[in-house]
């Protein structure tokens, strides 16, 4: 518990004050230029023409329907990937088997694939010229350029979030507590709900919040599979693009400010979750 991170004060050796402040100044300037400035710009542009214009932009029918679609997409992706993440973490962290490292690499794969490719692969399978596209057309089922395609592509890009957060956490916590629960007569599910889950609670929240942020904010992959049908297959980020390309900057930034706000909330929860996870690990 006393393993508090070292701070400059306990350092016996550090740079001269001038150097220190110079380095701080450079770092802060860099962060200001790249992080704070864009963030400020989003809100500034959004409120450029006043609050009423801002609200009007958000109340527009197409905006509302894009919000609906984005929430719907996240509502599918997050629970599915959460379930997958927990299941995969259980198998990988609590058991040993050959090929484990390969499996971890494969789970991380969607992170290293360009979002454009993430969308393309579904077009190749479900598109009209795709593997099962013709069959789908015969049966009047639309997947790409429709909502299911958007959901699938989003599941792909958010696939690793929960798993990659939980695997190292559950590995670090070992198996002893679960074994202790079993010796005391708990069933497998009881052990999972009452011992494993509370221990990784904040790790799950961390994974879920990042998964959700990406699901709601994904642009590239969704852009490929959506077909850009206004009011139908437009998610919030796609709607931002459309408004921007129509030179409707205020509306574009108004909608973008929603996403920026979501990003800020995500960062806050993430920071809290990170802190809690650290705390939990130190209890060992």
């Amino acid at each position: 518990m006393s393993a508090s991170p070292r701070t400059s004060k306990d350092r016996s050796q550090t740079e001269p004050t001038v150097v220190r402040w110079l380095l701080i100044a450079i770092a802060v300037t860099f962060l200001m230029l790249f992080l704070i400035l864009p963030l400020a710009a989003v809100f500034s542009q959004a409120f450029d023409k006043g609050f009423t214009v801002y609200l009007d932009a958000l109340r527009e029918a197409d905006t509302l329907s894009s919000i609906k679609l984005t929430v719907l997409t996240a509502a599918f992706c997050v629970p599915l990937n959460l379930f997958f993440g927990v299941t995969a973490a259980w198998a990988i962290a609590k058991f040993s088997f050959p090929g484990k490292n390969l499996l971890i690499t494969l789970i991380d794969l969607p992170f290293s694939v360009s979002p454009v490719i993430s969308g393309l692969i579904y077009v190749l399978i479900f598109g009209l010229q795709g593997w099962i596209g013709p069959w789908l057309q015969d049966h009047d089922i639309r997947i790409v350029f429709a909502v299911p395609g958007i959901i699938l592509a989003t599941i792909f890009v958010t696939f690793p979030f929960v798993a990659r957060e939980l695997i190292p956490l559950m590995e670090a916590q070992g198996r002893e507590e679960e074994e202790a629960a079993l010796v005391l007569g708990a069933s497998g599910l009881q052990t999972f709900w009452r011992v494993t889950l509370p221990n990784v609670k904040w790790g799950i929240i961390y994974g879920v919040i990042l998964c959700n942020a990406r699901a709601m904010g994904e642009f590239g992959a969704v852009s490929v599979v959506s077909g850009h049908i206004r009011g139908m297959t437009n998610t919030v980020p796609l709607h931002v693009e459309i408004l921007y390309n129509e030179y409707n900057y205020t509306a574009a930034f108004a909608v973008a400010s929603l996403l920026a706000f979501l990003a800020l909330i995500t960062l806050v929860i993430k920071t809290i979750a990170e802190w809690k996870v650290q705390q939990q690990l130190q209890k060992n």
């Binding site: 990042l210 590239g220 693009e241 990003a263």
Partner: peptide, 28 residues
Amino acid sequence: RYKFPGRKIADALVDLPFALPTAVAGIT
């Protein structure tokens, strides 16, 4: 290594590019 006002906020903000949707970053 260094303590300065706003360090914690700066630390949290570093992840902004992860959290901010790319389209928003792009237009901004």
